[in-house]
Design a protein around this nucleic acid. Structure first.
Lengths: 203, 203
DNA sequence: CAAGTTCAATACGGTTGTGTATCCAATACA
DNA sequence: TGTATTGGATACACAACCGTATTGAACTTG
């Protein structure tokens, strides 16, 4: 009934989804291949017929997640650039909306970052993805700055790097103490000041 | 020859040191008890005569590291507060000097943060430690602001939270791309702007 | 409709890792 | 000096996990 190609890629997808969940719950090494298969409703036989090893799965998972993320960004970019509102609203909106589940995304991406810090190959893949992500944000910043007649006294990419750094650090604090640090509070308090400091009306 | 009490706590300390190294290298779950014992020059017998389980070791390790860190801070605080120099130099100096090996410290603390996000008890311990750390920084900020006749338009603790967030996010980027993001570059570029924006001379 | 192919399930072997129980040496103490 | 205690080593039992080999079922194709 079902074409085998579709079937295959469907189980692959389900395994990847399961892996995403289980990794978020138990962490990289804490999640066993069997855990992932159980979550996806398969056995290890299915796993090893789709992936060569756990490491291979991790790379595939990261690639799949990255692809989805970049697609979402590409879809959102035009809207954000043309809609009214400040530059920071657009950037922070993009940072937020691309990851519906902030907690899970933070766990996964942080975990993979640690992995990358120990494995150079993973680091290259991660840096590549982050470079594309930054590029999207930088483009957004440049466009909005242009249309609103602003010039920035620091390279836009530097500015974006700073936003990302602050965002990730703040997210960590928000997840650790949700009541004391509401999501986005640090960004919304301090980023306007920085923007004010680095931007001047174009002459 | 050697007093038994001393001997015992000495091996405990060596095991904790070994655990610190091995955790930094292979991560939390990736490090086996035997790895740690090998590193410390003992066997698992010694381990289980000092710790009840791997989890117990982790908590003990975190406590020990935390204690050392807070001691170092307490020792540094008076110097920094009284030495000449700007507020930011003092704060960033404190952030830097407390962890001689930035990479190892980043790996360990990030790993433990992930652990805490999944285990509420660990989260409480971590938040407690971070609160004390923040308190030290806040105190430093308040003292320096006072002696230099400045008033801040945001609560000092908020300001400190923001510095920490930015610092941790920036450190992650620096470790991933040391050549593109020299350590401390983001902080030194943007923090002065924020400080300028939030501080006014006291009337 | 029969042979071949694909995909996942089952069964298995081997490795690794945890924790316990026992043993041995060294020190403390009577 | 002989006995008791303490700390660490050795040996062992047991579970978890990874990866492979084999089997079976569904679908494709000639």
């Amino acid at each position: 009934m079902e074409p085998p190609k579709r079937r295959r890629s469907a189980t692959r997808a389900r395994l990847l989804d399961g892996a995403l969940e289980v990794f978020a719950e138990r962490g990289f090494h804490g999640a066993s291949v069997e855990d992932i298969c159980d979550r996806a409703g398969f056995t290890r036989g299915a796993f090893y017929s789709n992936f060569g090893s756990k490491d291979e799965l991790v790379l595939a998972l990261f690639q799949a997640t990255t692809d989805r993320l970049l697609e979402q960004i590409a879809a959102l970019l035009p809207d954000l650039a043309n809609q009214p509102g400040t530059l920071l609203d657009a950037v922070l909106g993009l940072l937020g909306e691309t990851a519906p589940d902030q907690r899970q995304w933070h766990l996964i991406s942080t975990e993979f970052t640690l992995h990358a810090l120990r494995h150079p190959e993973a680091a290259r893949a991660l840096n590549e993805q982050r470079a594309m992500f930054r590029a999207s944000l930088t483009q957004l910043v440049e466009e909005i700055a242009e249309t609103s007649g602003m010039t920035m006294s620091v390279p836009p990419e530097q500015f974006v790097r700073m936003i990302i750094a602050l965002h990730e650090g703040a997210r960590s604090q928000s997840l650790l103490e949700p009541r004391k640090v509401p999501a986005g509070s640090l960004e919304h308090t301090f980023l306007p000041m920085v923007l004010e400091a680095v931007s001047r009306p174009s002459r």
